[in-house]
Design a protein around this nucleic acid. Structure first.
Length: 386
DNA sequence: TTGGAGTCAATAGG
DNA sequence: CCTATTGACTCCAA
């Protein structure tokens, strides 16, 4: 009970409504609020995040995307103004929202903000106005050579900017060129990942030198790759969980499979087809832990009858609160009203075939195994033999 | 220290 | 312009 602040955990089951009238929270001060909402001063989002019921991140992002495109609003403006995030982050969030229960408190914040934003149609217009103003300012600047006072950036005049002729080799410690891994390098790293999702420092060193990359780059790559693979798994989870839905106003097709690429399969996990020509390899859907070369490790775990059955994360119960837009603009009161959505898709049609999902789980298996052994005993896995 | 989550920010495509 | 991708960084927990 010491420092801890937010407790509130375990949001697994629908359970009842927390409905806690704020148990006071004085010791809540993060070093500077990252986003000082323009003209907003009151309840912190964090509080709302803490007591928010489960939100459907998929539905929210879908709606946001819809609204943004419908009104020609860009991710940059939306992100910087509403979420306090950069364009790239917004793009990522909208394209691959993690399911609510997999998000940390911090990670939920953007979704609560989105929901909040969506709750009042007036917000859209405000953003549009802002866009107009921005454009105007831009035009103005282009026309006249005067910089107006716009909260966004400052013009640092008087700075010397030498160089800049040829963006080639500039090994000066001024700006790192941003590493761009070549396709083959990525290939190699992915292959390595399949063998060992959690390479030891030693392995990392080897990889780095073999590929001629900095050690940190390899480390970062593994971090990022694991993280992103994991995320894709989540996505398929929610898609499988709430795919379908028939009568929806202009549903933008939630297909999770886009045929068309070359080696790209239906799944997202790279169809790293180059898993080495395995003699008699066509078995089952796909095999991942292709421990082919080298040790005769063969982590072939017998196929469990079925996956542990995805636990029903369903919560829904979206009470169709016919929220009448423009009905009493009372904000800062009932958070509840904000959390309900006029959009409801009770469709619970399960697709009998979850192919790709399995594949990723297999890949993840390696991770799990690795961690298990680590937890069980701190010992290097010289060789496994089941 | 290691690993995970969340982001930033450069940059490749459109 | 706008969006998507992705290496690197920051924070945090175990």
């Amino acid at each position: 009970m010491s420092s801890g602040g937010e407790s509130m955990k375990s949001l697994g089951e629908p359970a009842a409504q927390p409905a806690a009238p704020e148990p006071s929270e004085p010791s809540e001060s993060q070093p500077g609020t990252p986003l000082p909402p323009p003209g907003h001063s009151g309840l912190g989002i964090q509080e709302m995040v803490a007591m928010s019921p489960e939100l459907d991140t998929y539905v929210i992002t879908k709606k946001v995307k819809e609204v943004l495109t419908d009104n020609n609003l860009g991710q940059r403006l939306f992100g910087e103004t509403i979420l306090g995030l950069t364009q790239g982050s917004v793009s990522d969030l909208l394209a691959r929202p993690k399911p609510w229960h997999k998000l940390s408190l911090k990670g939920r914040e953007p979704f609560v903000r989105m929901q909040l934003w969506l709750s009042d149609p007036h917000n859209v217009e405000k953003l549009m106005d802002m866009k107009r103003m921005e454009k105007k300012a831009y035009m103005k600047r282009r026309h006249s050579s005067v910089s107006d006072s716009q909260p966004g950036d400052s013009n640092l005049a008087g700075l010397d900017y030498s160089q800049g002729a040829s963006p080639q080799h500039q090994q000066h410690h001024l700006k790192k060129p941003r590493v761009v891994l070549a396709p083959e390098e990525k290939e190699a790293l992915k292959r390595a990942y399949q063998q060992k999702p959690y390479p030891s420092p030693k392995t990392i060193e080897e990889l780095a030198s073999q590929l001629n990359l900095k050690t940190s780059t390899v480390i970062n790559w593994f971090h990022n790759y694991r993280s992103r693979i994991r995320r894709e798994l989540f996505i398929e989870e929610i898609q499988a969980g709430n795919q379908a839905a028939g009568g929806e106003s202009g549903s933008p097709s939630a297909q999770g499979c886009k045929a068309g690429g070359e080696g790209d399969s239906c799944d997202g996990t790279e169809s790293d087809g180059t898993v080495e020509g395995r003699p008699g390899g066509s078995l089952g859907p796909e095999e991942y832990g292709g421990a082919s070369e080298g040790e005769g490790a063969d982590p072939r775990e017998e196929g469990g009858p079925e996956t542990p059955a995805r636990s029903p994360t369903s919560q829904d119960a979206t009470t169709s609160t016919s929220s009448a837009p423009g009905t009493s603009g009372h904000k800062g009161g009932a958070i509840q009203s904000v959390f309900s959505f006029p959009d409801a898709a009770p469709a619970t049609a399960r697709n009998p075939r979850d192919s790709s999902l399995r594949k990723k789980k297999a890949a993840n298996l390696n991770n799990i195994i690795h961690r298990l052994e680590k937890a069980a005993s701190r010992e290097e896995p010289s060789e496994w033999e089941f």
